[in-house]
Amino acid sequence: MDKIKVIIADDSDFVRDGLNIILNIDDEFDVIGCAANGREAVNMAIKNKADVILMDIQMPEMSGIEATKEIVSRELGKVLILTTFDDYDLVKQAINNGAKGYIMKNHTPDKLKQMIKSIYSGVNVLDEKVFNKFTESLNGCSSNFDETLFTSRELEIIKLVADGLSNKDIAANLFISEGTVKNHISTILEKGGLSHRTQLAVYYLTGKK
């Protein structure tokens, strides 16, 4: 099995060195570069395309949000935001710029590796703390969410996605197959002009894409 090629972008030497050690001692990962700012991360990704770019937000020269947009638009790799900031606007900007995940820096090495592998495999991730912050301040569906775009079954599925359920759990809850759930979600994303389920959950809860 090929190793997952990773670029680490963080303006802290301590964080970069720590993540580099954590990942490189694992045979499943290959850290191909470490960047001190967003501009360096973009340039590294251009020279050596990575599978996953671990991206801090607040960095000099070019922020992680800006670098994410550049990397995604050039299809240079999948971006996983790794930060100390759980501000809603930053999460929204990161997702809109194409980040496939948004997690905080307080996770164990094993949890971080699991999330990198999820991103690599095509599964988007949103930190539980960030997700809970959204749901605690909101009461179900936002008034700006356009329910008229979707069927009643699709709305059921959307609500369960926003509640954080996996396709397997949604299937069990609604007594349908996982394949049917997957097909419904694909249709929902297309109707809503959305890229992935994390963006769908944010749209349902906040009314903002």
Rank of each mutant, 00 (worst) to 15 (best):
N43H: 05
K209A: 03
K69P: 04
F29L: 06
V6M: 05
I25K: 15
D169S: 12
E147N: 00
D87K: 08
A94R: 06
N173F: 00
K105T: 01
I188E: 04
S143D: 15
F85C: 13
E128W: 03
I81W: 06
N183K: 15
R74I: 05
T135D: 06
E178G: 11
E75I: 02
K208Q: 10
G140L: 02
S195P: 00
M59C: 05
G140D: 05
R197F: 01
I188Y: 01
K47D: 14
G140K: 11
V6Q: 03
I185D: 00
I188H: 09
E75H: 12
Q114T: 09
D169I: 05
G192E: 02
D17K: 13
D146M: 06
D2P: 13
K129T: 13
I119T: 02
K111P: 00
Q114K: 13
F175D: 15
E40F: 12
G77R: 06
G122T: 01
V202M: 15
M55R: 09
G193I: 03
D87P: 02
G77D: 11
V42R: 00
L200Q: 07
I4E: 01
F131N: 09
F85K: 14
I65D: 10
F134T: 02
M44C: 11
D13H: 07
V130T: 14
Y120E: 10
N132L: 13
E178N: 13
G179H: 10
K129P: 01
A36R: 12
M62K: 15
S186R: 14
I119P: 01
K129A: 12
V79M: 14
D17R: 09
G77V: 09
H196V: 05
L174Q: 03
K159L: 09
M44G: 02
L174T: 07
R74S: 13
G98N: 12
D146C: 07
L126R: 11
A162S: 14
Y203V: 02
E75R: 12
A45N: 02
K208V: 12
K209V: 11
S73D: 13
S166C: 05
D27H: 09
F29I: 04
K49P: 00
E178H: 03
E156F: 01
M55V: 02
I157P: 00
Q114S: 14
K182V: 03
V161M: 07
K92S: 06
S186A: 13
D110Y: 03
G98C: 04
G193C: 04
S177Q: 08
N167V: 08
D13S: 13
K117W: 05
G98K: 12
K117R: 15
G179E: 09
I21H: 12
K49I: 06
K5S: 14
A94K: 04
K111F: 12
G122N: 06
A41F: 11
G122P: 05
L19T: 00
I157S: 02
S137K: 14
N167L: 01
L155Q: 04
T198P: 00
L138T: 12
D2Q: 13
M1W: 04
E66I: 04
M104P: 06
L165G: 04
G98T: 08
I21S: 08
S12E: 10
V202C: 05
D87N: 11
K129E: 15
L112V: 14
I53H: 06
L19Y: 08
T198A: 06
E156I: 06
C34Y: 00
G122W: 11
G164A: 10
L160I: 04
G122M: 04
